[in-house]
Design a protein around this nucleic acid. Sequence first.
DNA 1: AATCCATTTGCAAGCGCTTACATTTCGACT
DNA 2: AGTCGAAATGTAAGCGCTTGCAAATGGATT
Lengths: 344, 344
Amino acid sequence: MQNLSSTRPTLEDVARRAGVSTATVSRCLSQPAKVRPALRRKVEEAINLLGYTPHGAARALASSRTNAIGAVIPTLSNAIFANVVQTLQREVSAAGRTLLLAASDYDMARESQQIRDLVVRGIDGLMLTGEARDGSVYRLLRQRRIRYVNTYVYHPDSENPSIGFDNRAAMFKLVAYLHDMGHRLFAMIAGLTAQNDRARERVEGTEAALAARGLEAGTILERPYGLEAGREALRQLMRQDRRPTAVLCGNDVLALGALLEAERLAIAVPGDLSIAGFDDLDLAREIPPGLTTIHAPLEEMGRQAASYLMHQEETEASVHHVELPAELVVRGTTGPVPKEPSPP
Amino acid sequence: MQNLSSTRPTLEDVARRAGVSTATVSRCLSQPAKVRPALRRKVEEAINLLGYTPHGAARALASSRTNAIGAVIPTLSNAIFANVVQTLQREVSAAGRTLLLAASDYDMARESQQIRDLVVRGIDGLMLTGEARDGSVYRLLRQRRIRYVNTYVYHPDSENPSIGFDNRAAMFKLVAYLHDMGHRLFAMIAGLTAQNDRARERVEGTEAALAARGLEAGTILERPYGLEAGREALRQLMRQDRRPTAVLCGNDVLALGALLEAERLAIAVPGDLSIAGFDDLDLAREIPPGLTTIHAPLEEMGRQAASYLMHQEETEASVHHVELPAELVVRGTTGPVPKEPSPP
DNA sequence: AATCCATTTGCAAGCGCTTACATTTCGACT
DNA sequence: AGTCGAAATGTAAGCGCTTGCAAATGGATT
């Protein structure tokens, strides 16, 4: 059953063994319908006998198709990326292709390098996170005719395809809801905006929403995404003379940190303070009293990205843009503004 | 600066442009030290001028090295896998290689297929999760001379290399600690053991530890890893006539679910009930009162796996096995057994 | 200047597969 | 049986790169 020699068997070995040409064997593998059953059977027999498996690189070289899809994300340590990659991988794998993955750790330079590496290695499609990156990267992708898509953002006017949601608009919804609940003084615990356009859009959305409603621009703290950072930021906010009554967080992890810290400081949530997150992690629903947040449609985003990247056939006239809804999910951490100003 | 023609430039284009042979260009790319600076400069100029990038498949075919490392894990939706993949990817990327990733969703058949796919695609090394899988997979890997390693387990007697920790021994530590705290009736909310040897080892470890101490084998519930499943399982345990005083959970996610449910049921933790997890997620430390758990040394595991898989040079005499410590971390969810039996 | 050896460079043969094109085979039909 | 077109198969030319080996080059040494 197994070939005992140390060099792996090649197509030619199979062809010889089956008494056919290499072309026929090749066809058996990629378009079995084109080979008559009798021959096909003989070939399959030879394949099993020799324990033959195709050589991916040779195949890619000869056919100039790699059947590989790449993805570059900031980090797998955040569930919102891990989950999308999980979905992407599932779809890609189901289509008989392979996922090449790189994580940039929120470093734009590294991201560029990783994209280039993936291009060199050979990919048919590429999922990217956000839009902000060097123009040369997009140029390379287009020159190489590699299909790509930006995710976690929806930028209908961009020349780069996007599948995602409107981060700004989501913050507008959140501010509107809290404003209507009577809140007037807001604060934000944002992510680091320097290398992260999604975080930036969330901040900008908040600022714009506050301005649009004639509200004071509150304190904005930038922190790396992490529970401890969220805790620390909340402490800092609560140390201020004029305490905000509502704290918007750049993501659920920061919000969870803030919530845990509020609990420790014996600040009632939402009695004294409302806290909201962004992303809607599993935990947001489970942790008492339930985290008010924006639901990021990750599953759908992963599926759509996979589908877009793998359907190369259709050449579309216009740039592909898909907006997925990012809905406000009201749970227990937000409520009406406290009657009297919260104690100093 | 960019080549405007639609076909990408090849090594030959560069060679012609620089007035050298393709061999020289090739050497400039892979062993620059072997080319005199003057020539090298000319070549680099031509490369930039044409916007040349190597063709990965051609390179892999000619050199029979792919510079790719594969990893197959159960799912990215669990942080313990996402974090290890994150580490692995970082190391792999830093070494100028690429990570090919597949997630099996705890389906052994799918896992086999994915491993085969990766082998066909071409990888120099492969990280696997657990040890239990079809013998033909290991045979293929060895026949193809692909370096591989099982992780999340430590099986010093296996012929397959492993880098991980001893799941059984860890449960022994946990049982010993709780027994010493006075607990006599244990229960376990385990993961699904059917397709998961790590989960199985944790169950077996618990059973063996209980038996070794002459303790009653308590109820063991198997549940898919998930918060909601943990909640439900705890409800079921608390409905029993004889309630356990200590609940061991197959992982931290189940433990967190159990903890949240206990809170909802107004069962005091650890006053009435002790709960312990496994893995030591970030959240385990943060969530009050702090989850007692086993710390899984993920970072180190990822690093060591990467290093082992990428250092092909040294041919070792014996099978590579590394045991990483999985320490008990005592926090707030465990304590002395309640004085009187907990109320029905 | 001639000689010699260590480097540097070029030549060219593949690596294993796909695929356009040529050739053969097979039935259906007359 | 003989024809003819469609379908099946074979032939062979690459795909873009690496690398063993031969040839050429450059200094160092005499």
